[in-house]
Amino acid sequence: MEQGTVKWFNAEKGSGFIERENGDDVFVHFSAIQGDGFKSLDEGQAVTFDVEEGQRGPQAANVQKA
């Protein structure tokens, strides 16, 4: 798993970007967020995640709040 920080997340659209510790920013969709309840992330929040190849390039998967 990688570690990173939420660069921004739009709760209305359900997507945003995570700033990786090593590498380019990666797209995140709300469906990749693990946990119960409303799936959203806050700017500056620390997260851990896997990276998968999506239709438009790398994207975060199995996102967990650190």
Rank of each mutant, 00 (worst) to 15 (best):
K65D: 08
R20S: 07
Q3A: 12
G57P: 07
K7R: 09
D36R: 10
D50A: 10
H29V: 00
R20G: 06
D25K: 09
F30S: 08
G44H: 07
F17N: 00
S31H: 07
G16L: 01
E2A: 10
Q55C: 15
K65L: 13
T48Q: 09
F17D: 02
G35S: 10
F9N: 03
K7E: 05
V47I: 05
F27C: 06
V63L: 05
V26Y: 02
D25G: 07
T48L: 13
A61H: 10
N10W: 08
I33Q: 02
A60C: 03
F9C: 08
A66I: 15
Q64A: 10
T48P: 01
N62R: 09
V51M: 09
E2L: 14
V26P: 02
A60L: 01
F27Q: 01
G35K: 03
V63D: 03
Q34W: 10
S15Y: 15
G35C: 13
E43Y: 14
Q64W: 08
A66T: 12
I18L: 08
K65M: 10
E2F: 15
E2Q: 14
N62Y: 01
K39N: 05
R56A: 09
S15D: 05
D50Q: 14
K39C: 08
G57T: 04
T5Q: 06
E53Q: 13
I33R: 00
E52F: 14
E52R: 11
A61I: 14
K39I: 07
N22F: 11
I33T: 04
A66N: 12
F9W: 15
S15T: 14
V6A: 01
G44Y: 05
E12Y: 12
A66Q: 13
D24T: 14
L41R: 00
E52K: 11
A11H: 13
F38N: 07
D25I: 13
V28A: 01
L41C: 04
G23R: 06
G16S: 00
V6H: 03
F38Q: 06
Q55H: 13
S15L: 15
P58I: 09
E19W: 12
Q3F: 14
D50K: 11
D36I: 11
V28Y: 04
A61N: 08
N10Q: 05
E2K: 09
G4R: 01
D24A: 14
M1V: 12
I18D: 00
V6I: 09
K7C: 07
E12D: 11
V47N: 01
G54I: 04
Q59R: 11
N22V: 09
L41A: 02
F27H: 03
D50L: 12
G23N: 06
R56C: 14
G14F: 00
A46S: 11
A60M: 00
D24Q: 12
E53F: 14
E12V: 12
D24G: 13
H29N: 04
A61K: 14
V51I: 15
G4D: 01
I18E: 03
H29T: 00
W8L: 01
F9A: 04
V63C: 03
P58D: 05
Q3E: 09
N22E: 08
F38L: 08
L41V: 03
A11F: 11
G16V: 01
A60G: 02
F49L: 04
G44T: 03
N10F: 00
T5R: 14
G44V: 01
F38I: 08
G37I: 06
W8I: 05
N22S: 11
Q59V: 11
G23I: 03
S31Q: 08
N62W: 00
F9P: 06
G54L: 06
V51D: 02
Q45P: 02
V26S: 02
A32Q: 08
Q64R: 14
N10T: 04
G57E: 03
D25V: 12
K65W: 08
G35N: 06
Q64P: 02
K39D: 05
G54W: 03
D24S: 14
Q59D: 01
T48H: 09
N62K: 07
G4M: 00
K13V: 11
A11K: 15
V28L: 08
G23F: 05
F30Y: 11
G16P: 01
R20C: 07
A46Y: 13
D25M: 15
Q55I: 14
G35A: 09
R20W: 08
K65Q: 09
K39T: 07
I33K: 00
D36C: 14
F17H: 03
H29Y: 04
E19T: 15
V63I: 06
F30Q: 07
V47Q: 00
E12M: 12
E12S: 13
A66G: 10
Q59L: 07
G16M: 02
F27E: 05
G44Q: 04
I18C: 03
E21L: 12
V28G: 04
R20T: 08
A61F: 10
G35Q: 09
